[in-house]
Structure formats: structure tokens, C-alpha cells
Amino acid sequence: MLQLFFAVAFSAVPLTLYIPPIRSLNLFVETIEDMLRQMAVHTIRTYPRIRLAFSRILSNLLRLSR
């Protein structure tokens, strides 16, 4: 059982190298929030256009199949 514990413990140590320290995590979270905010603006603008284009394509396909 002790050998299993040490095997799991030492295999998890390299994973801590991929996790950034807490002090730099704040900047990362702020950057992600800003990116999501900018994407939301573009999504709100383009969603009605995409929906209209999709409905036109679908109605043309249905009209051709009749």
C-alpha cells in the first residue's frame, strides 16, 4: 500500500509543472474574460444573420425537393 502511495505521489509531481502559480493565474483569468466579452459582442451581431441565411438555404432546399 505504501508503494502505491509513493507511485501515485511521484507520478503527480510533474503535473504541478503545468499548473501556473496563483499570482499569474489572475492575469490569465482576466484575459479569458476579456476575450469572452469581445466574442459575445460579435456573436450577438452575427447570430441573426446566420439564422436568416440558414433559414433561406433550408427553405430553398425544401422548395427544390418538391
Score class of each variant (00 low, 15 high):
Leu2Phe: 05
Leu2Arg: 13
Leu2Gln: 13
Leu2Ser: 13
Leu2Asp: 10
Gln3Asp: 11
Gln3Pro: 00
Gln3Lys: 11
Gln3His: 04
Leu4Met: 11
Phe5Ala: 14
Phe6Thr: 05
Ala7Met: 05
Ala7Phe: 02
Val8Asp: 01
Val8Phe: 06
Val8Thr: 06
Ala9Leu: 10
Ala9Cys: 05
Phe10Thr: 09
Phe10Gln: 09
Ser11Pro: 00
Ser11Asn: 02
Ser11Ile: 00
Ser11Cys: 03
Ser11Phe: 00
Ala12Ile: 01
Ala12Phe: 01
Ala12Leu: 11
Ala12Val: 01
Ala12Glu: 02
Val13Met: 10
Val13Asn: 02
Val13His: 01
Pro14His: 04
Pro14Ile: 00
Leu15Met: 12
Leu15Ala: 06
Leu15Tyr: 01
Thr16Phe: 15
Thr16His: 10
Thr16Val: 10
Thr16Trp: 10
Leu17Asn: 05
Tyr18Gln: 09
Tyr18His: 10
Tyr18Thr: 13
Ile19Tyr: 04
Pro20Met: 02
Pro21Asn: 15
Pro21Ser: 14
Pro21Tyr: 02
Ile22Thr: 07
Ile22Arg: 09
Ile22Ser: 11
Arg23His: 06
Arg23Tyr: 02
Arg23Pro: 00
Ser24Asp: 15
Ser24Val: 06
Leu25Glu: 05
Leu25Cys: 07
Leu25Ile: 08
Leu27Lys: 11
Leu27Ala: 15
Phe28Ile: 13
Val29His: 03
Val29Met: 09
Glu30Gln: 15
Thr31Met: 05
Thr31Gln: 12
Ile32Met: 13
Ile32Arg: 08
Glu33Asp: 12
Glu33Val: 06
Glu33Lys: 11
Glu33Asn: 12
Asp34Asn: 14
Met35Ser: 15
Met35Asp: 13
Leu36His: 09
Leu36Phe: 13
Arg37Ala: 12
Arg37Trp: 01
Gln38Cys: 03
Met39Ala: 15
Met39Val: 11
Met39Ile: 09
Ala40Leu: 06
His42Val: 07
His42Cys: 08
His42Ile: 07
His42Glu: 14
Thr43Val: 11
Thr43Asn: 10
Thr43Gly: 10
Ile44Ser: 13
Ile44Asp: 08
Arg45Pro: 00
Arg45Ile: 04
Arg45Asp: 07
Arg45Gly: 03
Thr46Phe: 09
Tyr47Thr: 15
Tyr47Gly: 09
Pro48Glu: 00
Arg49Asn: 11
Arg49Ser: 14
Ile50Ala: 05
Arg51Met: 08
Arg51His: 08
Leu52Val: 04
Leu52His: 12
Ala53Asp: 03
Phe54Pro: 00
Phe54Gln: 09
Phe54Asp: 04
Phe54Trp: 07
Ser55Leu: 12
Ser55Val: 07
Ser55Ile: 05
Arg56Asp: 04
Arg56Phe: 05
Ile57Pro: 00
Ile57Trp: 04
Leu58Gln: 14
Leu58Trp: 14
Leu58Cys: 13
Asn60Met: 10
Leu61Lys: 08
Leu61Gly: 13
Leu61Arg: 12
Leu62Thr: 03
Arg63Ile: 04
Arg63Thr: 04
Arg63Ala: 14
Leu64Ile: 04
Leu64Thr: 07
Leu64Lys: 15
Leu64Met: 15
Ser65Cys: 08
Ser65Val: 05
Ser65Met: 10
Ser65Leu: 11
Ser65Phe: 03
Arg66Met: 06
